[in-house]
Simulated assay, not measured.
Amino acid sequence: MKYPLHVIIRKKISSILNGFLSLFSSKKNQQTTVNKDEIKNILIIRPNYRIGNLLFLTPLINELNKQIPDAKIDIIVGMKLAGKILEPLPNVDQVIDIPRKLLLHPLELFRYIKQTRKKNYDITLNISGGSTSSQIVSALVKSKAKASFYSDKLWADFTHVQERGEKAYKHMGLETLEFLRFFNIPIPTLQPNLDIKLTENELNLADNDLQTLLQENNIAKDRKIITIFRNARFDKKISDAWWSEWIDKVSELDNNITFIDILSPDIPEKLNDKVLAYGNRDLRVLGAFFQKCNLYVSADTGPMHLAVAAQAKVLAFFNKTSVEVYGALGEENKTIDIENLSIDDVAKITKDFL
């Protein structure tokens, strides 16, 4: 994936700053593991504003619930909507959001410091390694143990540090499972999936939305439903012209399909008159809506991982990023690299997969 110049500059400045601060950090008496039987309160730090990166926390959260069922988890994130995605998980106590650019919002930073320092944690997990924001947060919280994987950009005083070593899974969505090593908990040999554990009420709300949308547009109940999400970051985005032609080609192969275009702040209008439109600011209900449809289709983007975490059937179209590292998790889902495929080829794959 190709980043814009301003993102490259920001990453470079952050890297230089962290490298400078790491020269003054203390790395004495660092340990590698804690006794999981003594852990009751866990803090996970992931100040990121991307939906996919937050959903990638769910394998770790769900595995900790299995292995340390009495422990409660707080999560510090970088987006307000994340609370609605993660907070309903059974072992999550609260989700705290911080400003995206922490040092540029001093009043918000002060509010955050007051909120987080009210609680003492048994262990804090720094998911983002050498990230400046993550280390600022790690330095401010009260915690008996503070754990991070090693980075030459670490400057905060972590009590527990490990070398990453070889990962159990190549997919980024399962990378957080590596933090189980700090608890001496084996990483699952059966590949887990993303899972936000939708409630029956959320599924019912989504089903009602879907049925209402179909009834209002006089769509027969026996038609197959494909939801599409057209947005993606930077050069991962697929053009509207491509999507329009793909819909035509799929419809030629199977004329019993209705397409629903998912709207968002970045996509306020539907693609054309051949599709229906739906949107929901409650991301959990949106995920449930994906599950209620026959198929969810998009490029490599956060809502694709939301669909996976909602246990929807997913077909992902990749053109820049690695299928192995970022593709749709789950044996029932499919990810294809469309870079060298014709739209006819992709349409046939879609029809066969549906």
Rank of each mutant, 00 (worst) to 15 (best):
H6R: 15
S14E: 14
L21C: 04
N29D: 11
Q30R: 07
K36I: 00
Y49T: 08
G52H: 11
E63F: 01
G78H: 10
M79K: 15
L81G: 11
A82Q: 08
E87F: 06
L89Y: 11
P90I: 05
V92G: 15
V95N: 11
V95T: 09
I98P: 07
L102C: 01
L102I: 10
P106N: 06
P106A: 06
T116F: 09
R117E: 08
N120C: 10
I123T: 02
S128E: 09
Q135W: 06
V137W: 13
A139V: 03
A139Y: 14
A147V: 07
D152F: 03
H160D: 09
V161D: 14
G165R: 09
M172T: 13
L174D: 08
L174K: 09
F179I: 00
F179L: 05
R181C: 03
I185H: 05
Q191G: 04
I196W: 08
T199E: 11
N201Y: 13
L214N: 07
N218I: 06
I226E: 15
F229Q: 02
A232T: 12
D240C: 09
W243T: 00
D248W: 00
V250N: 01
V250F: 01
L263T: 00
L263I: 00
S264Q: 00
P265S: 04
E269N: 10
L283Q: 05
L286N: 04
V297Y: 12
V297S: 12
A299P: 09
D300M: 04
K313R: 11
K313E: 11
K313D: 14
K320D: 15
V323Q: 12
D337L: 13
I338D: 12
L354F: 02
L354A: 01
L354Q: 05
